[in-house]
Simulated scan of single mutants.
Amino acid sequence: MVATVTPLHRETPASLDPIMALVSADMDRVNEVILARMQSDVPLIPELAGHLIAGGGKRMRPMLTLACARLLDYGGTRQHKLAASVEFIHTATLLHDDVVDGSGLRRGKRTANIIWGNPASVLVGDFLFSRAFELMVEDGSLRVLRILSHASAVIAEGEVNQLTAQRRIETGEERYLDIIGSKTAALFAAACRIAAVVAEREDAVEQALDDYGRNLGIAFQLVDDAIDYVSDGETMGKDMGDDFRDGKVTLPVILANARGSDEDRRFWKDAIEGRRVSDDDLAYANRLLRETGAIDDTLARARQYGQKAIDALAGIGGGKARAALVEAVEFAVARAY
């Protein structure tokens, strides 16, 4: 079963095509920066980094930096290195996450830690973080450096928060939202916000783009957490039920546990603590999620955050750039992977 969500404002399927077309020329420049800066005299570094960077990701976060710069009619070139910096931060966190989670698949391919081992993945992730900070410093703006460095720290905090919440069924909705707001939404927000800095726009515009990215990031993660249970490995590019087997307490689990019977809650406690993780247990978990409406309500919450993201753009720019940013939200909410 593949998760679907009713689009926010449209009758036709949402797509990233408009934003990709909008920033196509800019992305060529960003890709040149990425290719140049992932090089090293140590052959393993570009080999491992290239495996993930060329692994089929849509580069949504750097595209947001570029699209927001277009929205604000910025005519310079600073956004290219900064978008590359955003992508390096994201890629580094993926390398580290796969080690922490013991993941075997990423975007349908074997993860770097499976191919090269955990030490190499961690160290190349560190290399990419360093490259990201080099690019920030080259930009020369302390404001940009503050935004992106703060986002990097918040992401790390979110990952540690998630780690300490793992296998704890008592984790509540407030903590869950804190986790995804940090580990996912913080970089979306920063990627958008820095466009207002390079375009030298007022604080209100900075905050509006931050709100857009942050709400988009939360919606994005809510959808990810829902479809971990109801999609398939081929569609998602990772193994179905990874969150379940890893004991991650996501919103679907929180809702199903709160709404279930005493017997249901005993199951969820055993499952999250690692005692009920077979394929049959996953099938039973999926049944409980459907019966309690946990998946539908998680996706409905994603639509709410998506609408907040769209509303944040009110009064800022227009034309193809704004339409593309709106459709990017609709795609994130309505995607089936």
Rank of each mutant, 00 (worst) to 15 (best):
L288W: 07
H96K: 11
T164I: 08
G104Y: 02
T93I: 11
Q162P: 01
G260A: 13
I155A: 01
E234Q: 12
R193W: 03
E291S: 15
A191Y: 06
G108R: 13
E157K: 01
R107M: 15
E330Q: 09
G158R: 13
L289N: 04
P43R: 10
T65M: 07
E202Q: 15
D243R: 00
K81D: 15
T77P: 00
I155Y: 00
F244G: 00
M27Y: 03
S261I: 08
I155N: 02
V23D: 02
G125T: 04
D239W: 10
D139I: 01
H51Q: 06
L95N: 09
I218F: 04
I45F: 15
D264M: 10
N286Q: 15
R259M: 07
D98W: 08
Y337F: 09
R193I: 05
L222Q: 14
P43D: 08
N118D: 09
E11T: 12
L22V: 12
V329D: 01
A185H: 03
G241Y: 08
Q166C: 09
V42T: 15
F133W: 07
A120M: 05
R106D: 05
E200R: 14
E327L: 01
A334K: 05
D26I: 13
L148I: 04
V333M: 07
A195V: 00
A153E: 00
A271R: 12
L135V: 10
R143S: 14
T111G: 00
S231Q: 01
D73Y: 02
E273K: 05
H96V: 05
I227Y: 12
G172H: 09
K58A: 12
T65L: 07
L145G: 07
T6Q: 12
R37W: 15
G55D: 03
C68Y: 10
L72Q: 13
A208P: 00
G76K: 11
N31A: 12
N31V: 10
R107P: 08
R276C: 06
K308S: 15
I218P: 00
M136T: 00
D97C: 09
G274L: 15
T93G: 10
R322H: 06
A153M: 10
G237R: 13
A49Q: 03
T184E: 03
D126M: 04
R290Y: 07
I180Y: 07
L142M: 14
S85W: 04
I179V: 12
S40M: 08
M240P: 10
A132I: 02
T292I: 03
Q162H: 11
L128V: 11
V277M: 10
I272D: 05
A321S: 15
G158N: 05
I295S: 02
P13M: 10
I19G: 06
R193S: 12
E157M: 02
A196W: 02
D262K: 01
F133S: 04
V86W: 00
N113W: 03
V86L: 07
A196H: 03
F220R: 09
T235W: 06
D98L: 10
